[in-house]
Design a protein around this nucleic acid. Sequence first.
RNA 1: CGCGGGGUAGAGCAGUCUGGCAGCUCGCCUGGCUCAUAACCAGGAGGUCAUUGGUUCGAAUCCAAUCCCCGCAACCA
Length: 500
Amino acid sequence: MSKFYITTPIYYTNGDPHIGSAYPTIACDVLARYHRLKGDDVWFLTGADEHGAKMAETAEKAGKSPQEFCDETAAKYMECWDELNISNNDFIRTTSQRHKVAVRKLLQQLKDAGAIYEGQYEGFYCQGCESFVTEKDLVDGKCPDHGVEPKLISEKNYFFNLKKYLPEVKKMIDADEIKILPINKKKEVLGLFKQEINDFSVSRQNLKWGIPLPWDESQVTYVWVEALMNYVTALGYGTDDEKKLEQFWPADVHVVGKEIIKFHCIFWPAMLLAAGLPMPKAIYAHGLFTIDGVKMGKSRGNVIDPFNLIKEFGTDATRYILLSQFPFGQDGDIKASQFVIQYNSDLANGVGNFSSRVTAMAEKYFTGVVPARDTELKNEVEAIWVEYEKALEGFQVDGAIEAIKKLQSLGDGYVEKNKPWELAKTDEARLKEVIYNLLELLRHLGVALWPVMPETAEKILAALGQNNFTSQNFSLLKVWGLLEPESKVSKNEALFPRIQ
RNA sequence: CGCGGGGUAGAGCAGUCUGGCAGCUCGCCUGGCUCAUAACCAGGAGGUCAUUGGUUCGAAUCCAAUCCCCGCAACCA
């Protein structure tokens, strides 16, 4: 049995959960469930990144203490994942005691290894914001929020000696010791090495909302530095019990958005290298949404709330709709107006209707008793399984959805070709074979569906009398002919009622 | 000349590496069917493949230039 450790990005929770975070979380859930089905020992981590100036500022605007605010948003995230039926094994919060303790251990480790040195950070500081601002944020050289010119100031900071580790990191990426996927993202990362990459600061002086450095309590750890560390702190790094760390680290895949690949593909490996920890095996960068052609953002008022989607379509359909908009590794544009159309065509008319028609025929013609075995569709179904597995092994969640669609349309085509309603009048023996093939195909569809739409899969399989299927191994489940003749099946209720 | 990705039917995408009838899904139109959730199946209409120039018997694909969109570009994560 092999292990599979998968992580979502750790979300910066200074606002409510939105589909930008729901999307990769669902994708990771599909991969986690697939590996569990295969019998792998899976650890699936997600979490909340809760420190930093921006968080403190957002909390203040909301009239709350940072901790209070974080507690509330983290709860919303957890609720959202719960409603989306996300099967994460852990949810790490960077304000949790376990994270803070482990971060300080890891930072000390980096310091002891000589990877951290003291230096001066120079930047534009806005009095109004009480934080550094970037030049690109300035309008006419002034802070857009406060209308004042920020002062160039300098403060003591600790820096990570990134340059020392860059050649080794590059080598590992080149050699696919850290696989960067999809393949074009590897090119992009290697391209970054051609530009000058400077050491980065790991601390902040005038900020309270963060984790104090172990060797200098006047400085707070720079937020994304400790955020990246969540992938090991959640496994118990630096505690008395590092069993999980030994069992699951290195990660099999960090799934990240393409906007943060530099942090994950360069900075994080460098830190791991300095700390003497093994490298993640793969980093998969997924694409970003635009909505009706424009970037999603609160100020644009086009943010799609996952809770609303769940309310409108249900958990499984929301999972499906988000994943099926565009290929996982690419950017894509989505339109909320397409969601209903897609729900109706793929789910109501597709999977749902197919399940109804097949189980209804079994009831009508054979009073719900599975007729004699047949193997007419065996080869075609096996070929689709090969495609399905190949896609998921390569983290191509959308490929699995394609395979599911193929199974279903193979079924609908088979019904049309064989016209069971005519066979019922003319050829009982042939009818038995046809219905068996359809029921068995539906069983395969149910299994294939499980990682993507677990509740639906369970309903389909329960109607076929397959109740404890998740306890069985996938290698067995995908074999043709598991459905026993003489066993009892029942008609499925409408899995996805049509939306008008 | 900062780095990288992208621009293909009304919509969302594949095809570009390795040049050879421009494909998929949805939507639309027509026909068929009645087991099923007004579902299903078959057929059809719809594209100067961002623009311009070049290479070639032949270019969405290769080369050059231009325009537009997205991510990164030392501290927003």
